[in-house]
């Protein structure tokens, strides 16, 4: 069983943290990973930086620009992660846009992921139908799960299709927004979370976008398996430095 799948069977609510690889400094990647694991984070998403991250708000855009300036490349990331499975046991997911993966070569990328011990991918601009038709069997060959997003506007029929294709969790985007846009959840989110919960999907749901503190974490996980935090953590790293991970995680839960 893939590490993501076994983590999803745990009893407790899950906390997944996203951060941009190579940020704030190029060589911070592994140290941040270790600290996240040490503070009990359940899953980690590593952002492969891209010059034109369409789905991201200013915080993640800026961290990507900084990581690229620091010299982050696809090969550099895999080199940094070469020995990561000697001491990191939590599931690792690479989140990146499709163009850099295409240029690397999709199969070559998958192979490096497998060698490194990456468990899954989130590729926001690779639509589920294209994935299903062209890439799913390749990803399966390398033991990689691909996670898809749904939003409050995603039609039910499409959610069912995404559920069918999903082997890991479904990434439930909290509202119609780019990353990092929101600070609290209202009735609209509550209704949406309940609506999706009532669909009784096969895949577990993790809520992301707009989760920044204990309150939003609680609200997000009330009707889901867990929550994903990205922008708020990046902001914290930017302000408090790359060795302040525990400080952030302990205030969430």
């Amino acid at each position: 069983m893939n590490r993501i799948q076994s983590t999803l069977t745990k009893e407790h609510k899950l906390l997944s943290i996203y951060f941009t690889a190579g940020f704030p400094e190029l060589d911070d990647t592994v140290s941040v990973l270790k600290q996240l694991q040490d503070t009990g984070v359940d899953m980690i998403e590593l952002g492969l930086p891209f010059s034109d991250p369409l789905a991201d708000g200013p915080t993640i855009q800026e961290s990507s620009t900084q990581a690229l300036k620091n010299g982050m490349t696809t090969d550099t990331l895999f080199d940094q992660l070469k020995d990561v499975r000697k001491h990191i046991h939590v599931p690792l997911i690479i989140m990146g846009y499709f163009n850099p993966i295409m240029q690397y070569g999709v199969e070559r990328f998958c192979k490096r992921c497998q060698e490194t011990g990456i468990d899954g991918l989130i590729i926001p601009d690779l639509p589920v139908d294209v994935y299903h038709e062209q890439y799913q069997s390749l990803f399966q060959d390398y033991g990689l799960l691909n996670m898809f997003l749904i939003t409050p506007q995603t039609p039910d029929e499409r959610i069912r299709f995404i559920d069918k294709v999903s082997e890991g969790f479904i990434y439930m985007v909290s509202s119609a927004a780019t990353t990092g846009a929101q600070s609290s959840f209202g009735n609209v989110q509550e209704d949406y979370f309940k609506r999706i919960e009532s669909m009784q999907l096969n895949a577990k749901l993790l809520v992301g976008f707009g989760i920044s503190n204990a309150e939003t974490y609680q609200a997000a996980t009330a009707h889901s398996k867990g929550a994903i935090i990205g922008s708020a953590f990046i902001k914290h790293l930017k302000t408090h430095g790359s060795d302040s991970v525990a400080e952030f995680v302990t205030q969430i839960r």
Binding site: F98, D125, P127, V130, L149, T151, Q153, T154
Partner: peptide, 11 residues
């Protein structure tokens, strides 16, 4: 061509 868009843009 095609439509390589984030799910948020799909609708």
């Amino acid at each position: 061509g095609g439509a390589y868009i984030p799910e948020m843009l799909y609708p």
